[in-house]
Design a protein around this nucleic acid. Structure first.
Lengths: 262, 262
DNA sequence: CGACTAGTTGAGGCCAGTCAATGTTGGTGG
DNA sequence: CCACCAACATTGACTGGCCTCAACTAGTCG
């Protein structure tokens, strides 16, 4: 992919409206009863620890489509757990270059990009109506001092983020357009399955341009290859609705035939 | 870049010899007196905390060129501080695809790739004779429970790794070959300067193929562009010895002219 | 010396980017 | 309901940057 010259509309403007904050008191949900707990907190907590953790969540945030949770350069103070909806994180460089770093769905935690420098190095933007729990990072750190399981969990999540980013580097550095898109589709499928949704039939929450930005491709290439997959019977595409028909073949595309001669 | 078909020799074989371990008792150095302390532990410790931290370093490891510190898939148990020398981390996928994830020099800490899954997802290989301090991660976590400054430091370093990986994604996803190489050279320059070495004149520790693998380019492209830079008077290249002559122009290449019309 | 590795250079081809025209969809207001 | 519009998506023609293949040079080591 080349210089983004005309800069596709990825909705990363500083004019993006700020988010609404709802004090915790107003909503009846707590970590103890939250259906996403297994995703947010995979490590086993005692019920007492869980109660303590619950006190971290000082407010919830509601976002409408294209609203920003935080902007590039903004000072960092919290991680966010996605209760429902989905977001993208976008790296916006000084020279105007921008790229989608990741897509995030319910049960995932975002905001790790701010830990290194106390400022967010990417922006987070809702792709649809979403709701998040804010977890002040200072409080997490304090609580992690006394709850080893929380410390473990935090490190695990940061480590997973590192692993994920490095896989993305492999994708961007050494895969063909077809391979990237097959991987992208399978990756989403996995995450939907893990959440109990259909892994073969789902709705893309992002435009072709946004997919391209994430994969280092142009929107035209994304469109062309989706339709090639469609023609070849690997999937069905109709706008943003996709249905994977031959995941085995898609997987075979990802681990491409010619590279592994055995 | 395409499928690595013939697989360039990046020395990522399982036959790579294992590292030598020297018990701490044998070497007279301690964190308190280590010249790299400012790089390893940027956060202010009390001398008592430092003494406690020192007990973490249970052994040192010496590596010769192309020796592995750890392999992909190996179980994770320690971070490593580089005392001298340099290493590369290489992601090796199941399908044989491989890519250099990063180059690491003295004063840097590596091994974060193993935290997410308790196994290393990349391999670490010495580019020259190197020496490292092993810091068992369990011990770090334990000590971080009682020394908040250490906890801060650990989180900061993991966060920095995340930020760095995301910058690499931007590079791989949206930069031209010339831009990637200019950025690579300037990046090394910065790191050398930060360590008190010349930032304009240094020796590359890796081959053209390894540089290419890191930047998502072929070795031929790397060679061609180095020589183009040379011809244009931006730098001097002679094998692995480089001398940056016009860093301003190199920086201008990175923040490329046509993308930012103002 | 020959074998081997690292690097350079050239010719040619292809994948994906660019530009541009057209189609599709969903929302709004008459 | 339809007309209209804007945003999104598709498709085609063309181009060019980088990959591929291959030949050659220089340096190193047994």
């Amino acid at each position: 992919m080349a210089a983004p010259a005309g800069a596709p509309a990825l909705h990363v403007t500083d004019a993006t409206p700020r988010s609404q904050v709802t004090p915790i008191r107003d909503c009846g949900t707590h970590c103890q009863t939250c259906s996403l707990r297994k995703l947010c907190l995979p490590v086993a907590f005692t019920s007492d620890e869980l109660k303590q953790f619950d006190t971290l969540v000082v407010h919830r945030t509601k976002l409408r489509r294209y609203q920003s949770l935080y902007h590039t350069g903004e000072s960092f103070h919290a991680l966010y757990a996605i209760r429902f909806g989905s977001l993208k994180t976008v790296l916006l460089a000084e020279d105007g270059r921008e790229q989608v770093m990741g897509y995030h769905m319910l049960g995932e935690i975002i905001g790790f990009d701010g830990i290194g420098s106390d400022r967010h190095c990417v922006g987070a933007i809702a792709l649809e109506s979403s709701e998040l729990c804010a977890l002040p990072f200072k409080s997490i750190e304090n609580l992690a001092q006394v709850i080893p399981a929380l410390q473990r969990n935090l490190h695990q999540m940061m480590g997973t983020q590192i692993t994920r980013d490095q896989s993305a580097m492999l994708m961007l550095g050494s895969m063909h357009a077809e391979e990237r898109l097959a991987l992208f589709l399978l990756n989403l499928a996995d995450r939907y399955r893990h959440r109990g949704y259909s892994s073969t039939e789902y709705e893309l929450r992002m435009s072709r341009a946004e997919i391209g930005s994430h994969l280092g491709l142009t929107l035209e290439t994304v469109s062309r290859i989706f339709n090639r997959f469609h023609r070849e019977g690997l999937m069905h595409v109709q706008g943003r609705a996709v249905k994977l028909l031959d995941t085995v073949a898609l997987k075979r595309i990802v681990v491409n035939r010619d590279s592994n001669p055995l």
